[in-house]
Simulated scan of single mutants.
Amino acid sequence: MLSPALRGALGDWLEQQSAVHAAAANTIEAYRRDITGFLGFLAGHLGGAPGRNDIAALKTRDMRAWMAHERGRGLGARSLARSLSGVKSFTAWLAEREGFDATAVLATRAPKYTKKLPRPLAEDAARALIDTVELQHQTPWIAARDTAVITLLYGCGLRISEALGLTGAAHPLPQTLVIKGKGGKERLVPVLPAAREAVGDYLRQCPHPLDPKAPLFRGARGGPLNPRLVQKVMAQTREQLGLPSSATPHALRHSFATHLLSAGGDLRAIQELLGHASLSTTQAYTAVDTARLMEVYQKAHPKA
């Protein structure tokens, strides 16, 4: 339970995140879930629905009690760190608006966790996957559609939401696509001839009319293609090829970046192509490339 004032404040903050900071709908929902969970804990911890004064009076021990509660119910360190980040952002905004000191909340340290390295596919595995995905469906136009989507994910480094967000207005695909990514940020992405050919082949077979305002990739009945279907066809293909469970649609984006880096691509350029706000995010791929290099070294060097 939340006090009406705090419920209204949360709504205002979420609206600001959406309107001003252009946070994605999934991000807004995650914020809502995390902060509502935190305030729900406080209701039990403090013995009643928390209000503005309760938030202002929070101590370090209260934050530790919440974090211990979250870990006790099985929340991992990475997820708890994300929740804490949202709680801090909301509390900082509320403190500035209401004029109180939020040091106890803002000084709370996030739990340490090891960042997972991206798990890209090997180059030959990525090519085999693209060549094999069309075998997963007997309907020719659907097989061509799946091939086109997978080719775009790997060939352009797109997120699955970005690929499925393309409309008929994108056809014929230009040499460079304008992609609107996370936070509404736009970036330019070169389109390989193979990707243009795959999309063109799909559209020539697609039984649904091409509408500039409708999704480029259609489901069997003509509606927007559900991302779960892309995940399903990836699962079928990786099983056929004997690839690991980490071979997901998003792994193709990782593969795009890693293979570019291995071929001598500039890290800053790859950052722009992926639409990463911070270079530190892109630098994870240097760790992947270094790990692969060391593996080759240890296997091949006569002194290893």
Rank of each mutant, 00 (worst) to 15 (best):
M1K: 09
A19F: 03
A25S: 15
A30S: 15
A30W: 09
I35L: 14
G44A: 08
L46R: 15
P50C: 02
R52H: 11
D54W: 02
I55T: 10
M63W: 00
A68Q: 10
E70A: 15
G76Y: 02
A77G: 09
R78Y: 11
L84E: 01
S89A: 15
L94W: 09
A95L: 02
E98H: 05
G99T: 05
G99K: 00
A104V: 07
V105C: 13
L106A: 08
K115W: 03
K115A: 13
L117G: 12
R119N: 08
E123F: 10
R127F: 08
I130Q: 06
T132E: 15
V133R: 04
E134W: 11
L135E: 14
Q136P: 03
Y154H: 00
C156I: 07
L164M: 06
L164G: 03
G168E: 02
A170F: 00
P172D: 00
L177F: 04
V178W: 04
V178G: 06
K182R: 11
G183A: 09
G184Q: 07
L192R: 12
A195L: 12
A198F: 09
H208Q: 11
L210R: 14
D211I: 08
P212E: 12
R218F: 12
G223A: 09
L229Q: 13
P244C: 01
S246T: 15
A263S: 15
G264E: 04
L267D: 04
R268S: 06
R268M: 09
Q271V: 03
L273A: 08
L274R: 07
Q283G: 08
T286W: 06
A287Q: 15
V288K: 02
L293E: 07
E295N: 09
H301Y: 06
H301E: 09
